[in-house]
Amino acid sequence: MMKSRGWVVYPLLIISSLLLFFPIVYAFLVSFMSGTDVMNRSFLPSIWNWSNYERVFETVPLMRYLMNSFIVSTGVMLGQLVVCAFAAYAFAFIPFKGRNAVFLLFISTLMIPWEAAMIPNFLTIQAFGWMNSYLSMTVPFFALAFGTFLLRQHFKTVPHELMEAADIEGLSKFATFYKVVLPYCRTSLVTLGIYGFLTTWNMYLWPLLVTTNDEKRTVQIGLKQLQTVEVATDWGVVMAGVIIVIIPTLLLLFIGQKQLQKGLTQGALK
C-alpha cells in the first residue's frame, strides 16, 4: 500500500520542491553572474566568480549590518527566553490569586497587532532617546505571550515528584526553577530560542522606523538600501547580498526544523 503510493508521491514532491525552492536557487545562481549574464536572462552563470560577493561589501557596510542583526537577534532571543521563562514558571507552578486574570491579560496581547501600536511606540522610543540604539530593537520584544504559553505547556510536563523532591531537599523556588525546571525543559527553550532569533533577524518594519543611519541598521534594511542603490546597475551584487542575509536563518531552520515543528504545534494548539 505505502510502496505503491511512492510512484505518485515522489514526482509530486520533486516538482513542488523545485517550484518552491526555485527562487532561492536562482538567487544563488544570479549572485555569481556578471551583468551581461543577467541582461541575457541566463539561467546559469557563464563564469562562476565571487566578485559580486566582494563588491557587495564595498557597496554597503554589510559587515556592520550583519553584526547589528546578530546582536539584535541574539539579544531578543536571550531576553525573550528569560522573560518568558519567568512568566511561564509563575503560570505553571505558583497557584496565586488572580492567576486567571493575569492569564487573560496575556491572551489579550495576542489580539493586538504590533502595527496597530507602532505609532505611539515610535513616539515612546523617541522620548526614551532610543532611536538608533539596540535597545529600541530588542527590549520591546522581550515579552511574548506565544513564548510564555509554549514554555508553560512544557513546564507543566515536569513530573511533580521532581519538584517535591527538590522541595524536600530544601531548594528555594528560584533554585528549583533553574536547577530542575529549566534543565528538564531544555528542548522547548531551544525551540523558543530558534523562533526568537529567526523572527528578529527577519524583522523589517520596526528597524526601518527606529534606525536612521548606518551605525545600527540591520541587514534587512541593508537589503532594501542595496536594492535601491544597485537596482539599475547590477543584480548580481544584490543577490549576493540576499544570499548572505538568508544563510544564517536557513541554516538555523534546517538544524532546528524538527524541534520548531513540534514546538509550534504544541504552543499553538494546546
Binding site: I24, A27, V30, N202, L223, K224, G241, I246
Partner: peptide, 22 residues
Amino acid sequence: FRTILSSTMGMSVAASAVIWLF
C-alpha cells in the same frame, strides 16, 4: 523534502521581496 518545503519560513520579507522583484 520536508526541509526544502519548509525553507521559506527562514526567508525574511526583505530577502524574499528582493528576489521576487528580480
